[in-house]
Design a protein around this nucleic acid. Structure first.
Length: 482
RNA sequence: GCGUCGAUGGUAGAGCGGUCAAUUACAACAGACUGUAAAUCUGUCGCCCUUCGGGCUACGUUGGUUCAAAUCCAACUCGGCGCA
């Protein structure tokens, strides 16, 4: 059985940081650069493992700690001998630490913020503040609508009774009678006010973070039943030992692209302390309880879009060790704009140990892959191919298409030109029909295609580096894709 | 034949005198999606004018009542049900 190791086969002659290598793991080799499909809940959504192996030909897959902890529970996964065995997948595996959920269930919750922000978003100052302002106004209106009606009607009753009640002076014409009518109104409108309040609360809850971050860790409210769960670096290590991946990540905090520098710094320092604790606890736990094998631990570099923070984080984590035991590799996480991405990657990878593999967490659009590899990355995981596929977006060499567009209803051309792709056998018209009629196999074909497309693209990039044609290949692909 | 209930935008189906070009769902047309709260979400959805807004034609047909009708009345047409 092979231990984890990384060897660099070739450094690009054109792009100084790009390299071709092999990550050896107990379950097989990953030829890098490589794209790692995501199977969050121990399934590549909509694809059978056999079809995945035969038609996608990826070297590894990645699952998620948070999701498998909540369902079915890491204990059950452990009893299967790890998530790979459970899902009948043979090959190298990764698990993510749950750090991304600090962002997606935290600051991004219900606000529609993506971790890849645009420059416009950032320029549009404090988007989060704007959102909360809007909600305060709405809040005020919602909460007081019936109060206004009540006050108005009280005055009406009071006024009307005054006109007809010269002989009822003892009751009317006094403030107390006004209050009397007001109370009647309040009782009368009680049920409407309550209903309104309920609506308002629902609205507010939609916009509410499900996480609480502290030095010790992160408190998550389960999205399934609202139950509370604390993730600490130690807890994350324990779960990931039960999940049994060959490679796993230290618990980190993925910050929002809208967080300011002070906060990024604070979160970064915390992530470093958590990395240290992850390293310690991983050592204490020893081999995986699920597979009996030693697992490789990657640290996660953070620092948002700030050069100096990224450099600092790379240096600290690169040197971090426990009695000479260093991290086996590094993930690059966090959020930023597309424009900032390249410079961040460059400065990060320049400051990470060269002989360790580097993984780009959650990034995988076509141009990102080129820029990532050019700047020294070895592996990528991304949800994009499968999620896009399920929503009807199909990669083609000439750009992404939306199979729902009416023109594809009658398009007899194959979904994929490449005969080695499963989708080659089907017309776009058929795929359009499957999607329109909500047939499940539509998502399957589209997912197989999109994954095949991205995985083979990265393999081709690998070949282009080996053949010293990286830039030529990049230009050719991107020009056509755009 | 008699009685009774009904007829609303591509479909289903709300509305039952002004706040109605008409709630909603589906369909249709577009868009978004980057460590998966995601087989999800957003927008448009009678016609015309450049948006705010304005104009026009519309709730089976034709008349009527009313300042005002998808909404009330009458007749007709079509359909469901019941009795012959």
């Amino acid at each position: 059985m092979k231990e984890f190791s990384f060897e660099i086969k070739k450094k690009s002659k054109e792009a100084p940081m790009a390299r071709v290598g092999i990550i050896h793991t107990p379950h097989g080799d990953i030829e890098t650069p490589a794209f790692i499909p995501v199977g969050t809940k121990a399934t590549i959504k909509s694809i059978l493992p056999e079809n995945f192996n035969e038609f996608v030909k990826a070297d590894a897959i990645l699952a998620n700690t948070y999701h498998l902890y909540l369902e079915p529970g890491n204990e059950i996964v452990k009893n299967h001998g790890g998530f790979a065995k459970m899902m009948n997948y043979v090959g190298p595996t990764f698990t993510d630490s749950g750090g991304f959920q600090v962002f997606s269930l935290g600051s991004a919750m219900g606000v529609g913020v993506s971790k890849i922000a645009t420059r416009e978003d950032l320029a549009n100052e404090n988007i989060e503040k704007n959102i909360s302002k809007k909600f305060n106004l709405l809040d005020f209106f919602k909460r007081n609508k019936y109060l206004f009606i009540e006050i108005f009607l009280s005055f009406m009753f009071w006024g009307v009774l005054r006109i007809f009640s010269e002989d009822l002076n003892f009751l009317l014409g006094s403030v107390s009678s006004l209050i009397f009518f007001f109370i009647i109104d309040i009782l009368f409108f009680k049920k409407y006010r309550l209903r309104d309040r309920q609506k308002y609360n629902n609205l507010k809850n939609n916009n509410k973070s499900l996480v609480k971050i502290s030095e010790n860790g992160v408190e998550f409210k389960s999205v399934f039943d609202g139950s509370k769960h604390i993730f600490t670096p130690e807890k994350s290590m324990e779960i990931q030992h039960d999940l049994g991946a060959d490679i796993f990540f230290a618990f980190d905090e993925c910050t929002s692209p809208f967080a300011n520098k002070d906060y990024q710094k604070e979160a970064l320092e915390r992530t470093h302390r958590w990395a240290k604790r992850s390293l310690e606890h991983h050592k204490k736990l020893g081999v995986s309880g699920a597979t009996g094998q030693r697992q490789a631990l990657y640290a996660v570099v953070q620092g948002g879009a700030y050069d100096d923070l990224r450099k600092y984080s790379a240096q600290v984590l690169g040197e971090m060790n426990l009695d000479g035991k260093y991290f086996d590799g590094f993930g690059i996480g966090g959020s930023f704009t597309k424009e900032d991405m390249t410079k961040i990657l460059k400065i990060t990878n320049e400051n990470l140990p060269e002989n360790k593999p580097r993984h780009f967490l959650g990034i995988g659009e076509i141009e990102d892959l080129f820029y990532g590899i050019e700047n020294g990355l070895d592996t990528f995981d991304c949800v994009s191919p499968t999620r896009l596929a399920r929503n009807g977006a199909i990669y083609t060499k000439d750009g992404r298409i939306n199979i729902f567009n009416s023109k594809y209803k009658t398009d007899m051309s194959p979904v994929c030109e490449d005969p080695s792709c499963y989708a080659h056998k089907y017309t776009k018209a058929y795929l359009a029909h499957l999607f329109r009629s909500k047939e499940m196999i539509g998502a399957t074909i589209a997912s197989l295609h999109n994954l095949h497309f991205i995985v083979s693209l990265v393999k081709d990039i690998r070949q282009s580096i080996l053949g010293d044609k990286f830039f030529e290949f990049k230009k050719e692909v991107l020009e056509r894709y755009r």
